[in-house]
């Protein structure tokens, strides 16, 4: 039973908003391309979903435009450029590297660098120094304490 459920779950795969068959292109290869393009384009309304995943009206309009351009024979780059020209870098889920996006692309490396630096500093500081041997007075007091705890 559990295996069956797992198999069904795996079969279901990611849910995409292109539910209505009227949106899909008749040619499966073109539809496949349109989906791949749509997964790279951000829905400007929901902002953390691609236009393929979003239920927003604008995402639907953009899905239709992507399919229109694909059916008209545009290359993948041309379709992306069409949307990019209108909505700017933000619409690309993988934005190009520029001054404005440098922090975005650089953040993982900065975090890694900061972590390494922290490890290095902690290691240098944390190196334990050699224990200082007890002085003769301390040793005598310790011996006395060990013999009679009440002393």
């Amino acid at each position: 039973m559990r295996r069956l459920i797992l198999a069904l779950l795996l079969l279901a795969g990611p849910a995409f908003a292109v539910g209505s068959p009227s949106e899909m292109l008749p040619d499966p290869a073109q539809e496949q391309r349109a989906r791949a393009i749509g997964r790279e384009l951000r829905c400007m309304v929901c902002q953390n979903e691609s236009i393929e995943e979003s239920q927003a009206g604008l995402a639907r309009d953009l899905r239709l435009i992507v399919r229109e351009r694909v059916a008209a024979g545009d290359s993948d780059q041309a379709v992306v450029a069409y949307v990019h020209d209108r909505y700017g870098d933000f619409v690309l889920l993988r934005p190009p590297f520029r001054l404005a996006t440098a922090a975005l692309w650089g953040a993982p490396f900065l975090a890694l660098g900061a972590g390494l630096l922290a490890i290095l500093l902690l290691r240098r500081r944390g190196a334990p120094s050699e224990p200082v041997p007890l002085s003769p007075e301390e040793r005598a007091r310790l011996a006395a304490l060990e013999k009679d705890p009440t002393a």
Binding site: M44, V45, G57, L58, D61, L62, I65, R86, Y87, G88
Partner: peptide, 12 residues
């Protein structure tokens, strides 16, 4: 149809 709005980059 909202197509001119898309040409302007309107998102809401």
């Amino acid at each position: 149809p909202g197509r001119v709005a898309i040409d302007w980059g309107v998102y809401g």
